[in-house]
């Protein structure tokens, strides 16, 4: 039985490793060469992607958009989640959570694209960092609320009562007690937010048209339909560079991810 599971796991692993390995090998091909493995491997493609192509700008854009989007989500979600978690009638919390989950899972984010774009255009926020971050709320806000609500539900009420008796008003409680205690939940939200949005294409491609503000995912998508389509080495090395932060991120915070997921299930 154990060996059967091992075989299965090896197959799964190979389906990930083989394409990734091939991608790495392609990225090392000098221009004009098509042999795998490469006969004369070179890092020129990476140098080109960085120096000429300035791909790091697009990656920074991705970071910036996601960072701002999650920040906005957290600012909005923490008080919301707090209200949900502390609502007098617990029954509502469950109804709300279930409705939220169904909504998030069944509504394709693309269906909101047109109204969101129109709204941002009217606010003159298209082609801005803030505009993209606001449009990302479609993805981030519901699930950040969800994660934080599940964390706050686990928070003992007595700690808060103690703070009230110690003279802390509503805002002081949120600042000194609720916020610090929900930091694990906030970290989970940040991690899952980054993982979810790293490859986001639809909103960032529609809302941003300027080359300077495009995200890594959008640029990668455009590469396929541009003059670089024949230059596989450049395509592959750009892809690898864009994957690196995600791999680094995941291995660095693996523990927190599992915590975030189990926390989410509990809520």
């Amino acid at each position: 039985m154990a060996s059967l599971i091992n075989v299965f796991l090896i197959v799964v692993l190979l389906t990930v490793l083989v394409p990734l390995g091939v991608l790495v090998m392609i990225s090392l091909l000098p221009p004009g060469e098509w042999s795998i493995p490469p006969k004369s491997p070179t890092l020129d493609n990476f140098v080109y992607v960085f120096k000429e192509f300035r791909f790091y700008r697009n990656m920074l854009n991705t970071f910036l958009f996601i960072g701002l989007a999650i920040l906005i989500s957290l600012v909005l979600a923490l008080p919301t989640a707090y209200a949900i978690a502390r609502l007098q009638i617990k029954y509502y919390v469950w109804v709300f959570t279930v409705v939220l989950v169904i909504l998030v899972k069944s509504l394709p984010p693309g269906s909101l694209l047109v109204p969101v774009y129109e709204l941002l255009w009217k606010l003159r926020l298209t082609n801005t960092v803030l505009g993209v971050a606001l449009s990302y709320q479609v993805y981030t806000l519901p699930f950040v609320i969800w994660i934080l609500t599940s964390f706050l539900l686990d928070l003992p009420r007595e700690v808060e009562t103690a703070a009230r008796i110690d003279g802390a008003g509503r805002f002081a409680r949120l600042r000194h007690i609720i916020f610090p205690l929900s930091i694990p939940g906030i970290i989970s939200a940040v991690i899952l937010g980054f993982l979810n949005l790293w490859n986001e294409y639809m909103y960032s491609s529609v809302i941003v048209s300027s080359r300077n503000l495009q995200t890594a995912a959008v640029v990668l998508g455009q590469l396929v339909t541009s003059e670089y389509v024949y230059d596989w080495g450049i395509l592959a090395s750009a892809n690898i560079i864009s994957v690196l932060p995600a791999i680094f991120f995941v291995s660095f915070v693996q523990k927190n991810i599992s915590k975030a997921i189990t926390g989410g299930i509990k809520g």
Binding site: V159, T161, A162, R164, I165, A168, P180
Partner: peptide
């Protein structure tokens, strides 16, 4: 309660888990 000027010792103490003992006592 925040304006009643009472102290309360809870059965499970309800200390603030993220603060040191000093900060707990200093909070009021």
């Amino acid at each position: 309660p925040e304006r009643r000027d009472v102290g309360y010792v809870f059965q499970n103490y309800a200390l603030y888990p993220h603060m040191t003992a000093f900060d707990n006592i200093a909070f009021p």
